[in-house]
């Protein structure tokens, strides 16, 4: 029975950690960010598994994690406020040639990272960027100046991408 509680606690703890630590998964991750993901996952596992190395424990905990994940996704669907807490909301970092410094500081995003996303879109300078949006999944979407509202191409698949990986 404790295996179920340990799995629920481990899952929810990881969701909170990833959410609080920052919105930098996937393509925006620097090599040292991977260390964080491996470590917090590995360390949580030791507490979840404890000394029970049986297949039964593994099956029970995998099913528990899957059920908890399903419950959170359903909850997110029926209660948008909860979805906002779980995934966060997109944040505009740059708008019409103006940095939104509060966003950059609080989201711990550097101007270099925005420029890197702009380069990936074929832009050669920040002056060509109309909007830079930090999406829920941690990707930075770049909209070329003058392209709004017609073009909406981003590096990370847009804000309605797979939010199962969202963490910011």
């Amino acid at each position: 029975m404790t295996a179920v509680y340990r799995a629920i606690f481990g899952y929810c703890f990881l969701v909170l950690m990833v959410r609080v630590v920052g919105r930098r998964p996937g393509r925006q991750m620097a090599p040292f960010d991977y260390i964080l993901i491996f470590f917090i996952g590995g360390l949580t596992l030791t507490g979840m598994v404890s000394d029970d190395r049986s297949v039964t424990n593994a099956v029970v905990q995998v099913v528990t994690v899957a059920a908890t994940h399903y419950a959170l996704t359903r909850l997110r669907q029926v209660w948008p406020k909860f979805g906002l807490m779980l995934d966060g909301a997109p944040v505009v970092l740059l708008m019409h040639g103006q940095w939104r410094t509060e966003m950059l500081e609080e989201m711990r995003i550097s101007q270099d990272e925005v420029m890197a996303a702009a380069r990936a879109q074929g832009l050669t300078s920040l002056s060509e960027v109309g909007y830079a949006v930090l999406e829920r999944n941690g990707a930075i979407s770049i909209l070329r100046a003058g392209s709004v509202p017609d073009a909406a191409e981003g590096t990370g698949g847009g804000e309605h991408g797979d939010s199962a990986h969202a963490a910011g």
């Binding site: 906002l84 909301a89 944040v91 505009v92 609080e106 909007y131």
Partner: peptide, 19 residues
């Protein structure tokens, strides 16, 4: 929308509470 042109779904009030 942000700037009355880009549909982002930004929620500044929530964002500040979250921070």
């Amino acid at each position: 929308k942000v700037g009355n042109e880009l549909a982002v779904g930004e929620d500044l009030a929530f964002q500040r509470r979250w921070w």
